[in-house]
Nucleic acid binder design. Sequence first.
DNA 1: GGTGCCGGGGA
DNA 2: TCCCCGGCACC
Length: 430
Amino acid sequence: MTFTFQPEDLKRDSGKKMSHQHLFPLAMEEDVRTADAKTAPRILDHDKENTRSVCLLEQKRKVVSSNIDVPPARKSSEELDMDKVTAAMVLTSLSTSPLVRSPPVRPNEGLSGSWKEGGAPSSSCSSSGYWSWSAPSDQSNPSTPSPPLSADSSKPFRSPAPDDGIDEAEAGNLLFDEPIPRKRKNSMKVMFKCLWKNCGKVLSTAAGIQKHIRTAHLGEQHVRGGVVRLLRLLGLRRVGDSDCSDGEEDFYYTEMKLNTDAVADGLSGLAPGSPSQSLASPPTFPIPDSSRTDTPCAKTEAKLMTPLSRSAPTTLYLVHTDHAYQATPPVTIPGSAKFTPNGSSFSISWQSPPVTFTGIPVSPTHHHPLGTGEQRQHTHTVLSSPPRGTVSLRKPRGEGRKCRKVYGMEHRDLWCTACRWKKACQRFTD
DNA sequence: GGTGCCGGGGA
DNA sequence: TCCCCGGCACC
């Protein structure tokens, strides 16, 4: 696969090579030293230049090979550095605000690569041009769908993190959403990915990922810093946090911007539910092939909702709660999310009301003495029908016999006035 | 098509 | 305010 960014990359590489001498004199010195050690006895200026040029060539080769895709064999040589790289990358991503972070500005760009969608290609991916491709197509032709995803392009967008299996699964999942460029504009979501080795869990909230890291990786001794962390999560992040008694987990997760469709389509298997995640973190289910299916996104974060199908429950929920007379919770979301409740199902304690997603649509529990069936049906109609333009809060039709039925047309004078006037019957009220 | 009833209009 | 009716939704 060829990338449109390659010229820029090459130019950048050349520029980097030039700047490399100035910006990283130590490395140059080291190279020169090693070269000098080899050719020390016969040091001449000309020889120096030669060795320097050789070093430049080598260095250029290094830089290029670190920026442009390298076959996977490269990983073995650099795998030991990945932890450092990952740590640096996480530091970078943490030191910048997730909202204003600009992908191209990134130290360690050559090695770590910006594995966000807009940045340089990831060095660990043999064909990572997908995300980088989408960026120009975003600008030039926003309505164009993403390029044909060939089979070998299924390793997009990925971090150089060591956990490749999970990343591949996740990346493959992220590929399933088609026109990423357009959707990314209005439906980006920041996810948090655990960078712990062989973990790679992705949660939708920092709290969730921190808790995950804390509990799953760092151990429980960090719970004591929960207050500090809570303050930080409440917007006081990294303020007064200098003692570093806590927050160690910050270095084990990173943020990544995801398309919400990708999230919606593929997030379900990502977060192995630490059951006390915050409300935004999606519950997960064991997916055997690590491919993501629908996620039960019946949560408050509308950002995670797919605009079409998955927004329906939310919309219904909102519409539903708008009508106060419909006292029942929106549990009759008609087959919206195909929950596959495993044994423990999940009664996540997020605020979305008493929904215990057991997979069975719960019928409203009105206590109408007579006419529960009709009432229920009416409620269902309200829920399943789109919000009408004409808000006709038409009263549900009374089920009892009315004057018309009781007395018949021939005894219309016996009707109640309302019935005579074609109004709601006042005699046989429901 | 029958029925309930909302919305509107005329007196 | 009373009375009537068109029209709509539901059955």
